[in-house]
Design a protein around this nucleic acid. Sequence first.
DNA 1: ATAAACACTTGCCAAATGGCAAGAAATAAA
DNA 2: TTTATTTCTTGCCATTTGGCAAGTGTTTAT
Lengths: 200, 200
Amino acid sequence: MTGFTNENKEPLINFIQSNLPVSTQILADIASHFELRSFTKNDYFLKEGKISNDYLFLEEGFMRAFTFDINGYEVTTYFYPKNRAVFEASSFFMRTISTENIQAVTDCKGYSITYDKLNMLFHSVPEFREFGRAMLVKEFVAFKQRTLSLINKSAEERYANLINSNKEIFQYAQLKHIASYLGITDTSLSRIRKEFSKKQ
Amino acid sequence: MTGFTNENKEPLINFIQSNLPVSTQILADIASHFELRSFTKNDYFLKEGKISNDYLFLEEGFMRAFTFDINGYEVTTYFYPKNRAVFEASSFFMRTISTENIQAVTDCKGYSITYDKLNMLFHSVPEFREFGRAMLVKEFVAFKQRTLSLINKSAEERYANLINSNKEIFQYAQLKHIASYLGITDTSLSRIRKEFSKKQ
DNA sequence: ATAAACACTTGCCAAATGGCAAGAAATAAA
DNA sequence: TTTATTTCTTGCCATTTGGCAAGTGTTTAT
């Protein structure tokens, strides 16, 4: 067990700053409204049927989002490595019921803020508003790119992309989860891995 | 050539009303801020590199969105049949440069409003604000479903889905555009069509 | 420590999709 | 109308991916 209960908001502040350069004063104020959260492996951060009501900065650990297809099979839709924001953008911003689950793959630690508090901050700290827009842009753009790559790349190319851009995924996630994320079966992924390692 | 220059906002008003039940008075006010637009076949409504600055209600005609993959091949990302809203949500709401083109597949007619005017309306007509949220929800949800279906359905299933939900597409769009939308080659689409027609 | 459950790999073969090129059909241009 | 251009289909074969089941290795529970 790591020291997940010690509160130190430096990483959170650095994260906000990297997205939005504002004064240290304001940063501290914003950060003060986030609260420490910790999750044990397999805990849920979001369950389908609920509204994604918390925006989480993930400082330590690894999470994944998944949903079910029409045949009842689990499909992984997203991976969240540490030092990232975790939330389901469409549900969070639109206040609609989420069709996705977000679950801790390892023990996790982070800082979260509710939708209402975040809006309060947008109101009281005008400089912070741009952060809200940036949050959504990031999610939307990432999502579009993912869709595009599903259309015009082979499974092996998608695998290569993933391993180059997100090595941590292979460190934490199960192959069957990575497989459904890539849109293939775990059998195929296993073979692609084998071929791929030969080529390198 | 149809009478595309005559202004009659009934269809626009009906469209808004179907998304947001408000008084006839308010509807008329809102509609008065939209202006008539017409496009000749192959005209662009949006070009990549620009910000999607107009929200268009498409009354007549058919449009499609496309972008290019890393190998320079065109990929159709969306079809817009008549009686729909046409805009690139992430660019429009986030004020970021669009990576997509939106082009008239046939001659088109519709009513458009700029981002600034729309925001003005959200401000001056509180009842209308919910419309903005609905706009985004619709786009985001549609997008997620499309991505999911790319992961867990076969090309033939995606084809069946499309023909059941959007018959007009097959009336207007070229097969190669439908093919890239479905994530397959035009050759494969041609074969799937053949097989599919046998089964029906 | 042992058993049970789970995760991953692999062989065999089937099914889905792609690549290329030729021909047929539809559309646009002259 | 005739010709040219573009779109769509199809045959042949290669490649990619999937389905199933057995086998191996790893983790978890008792």
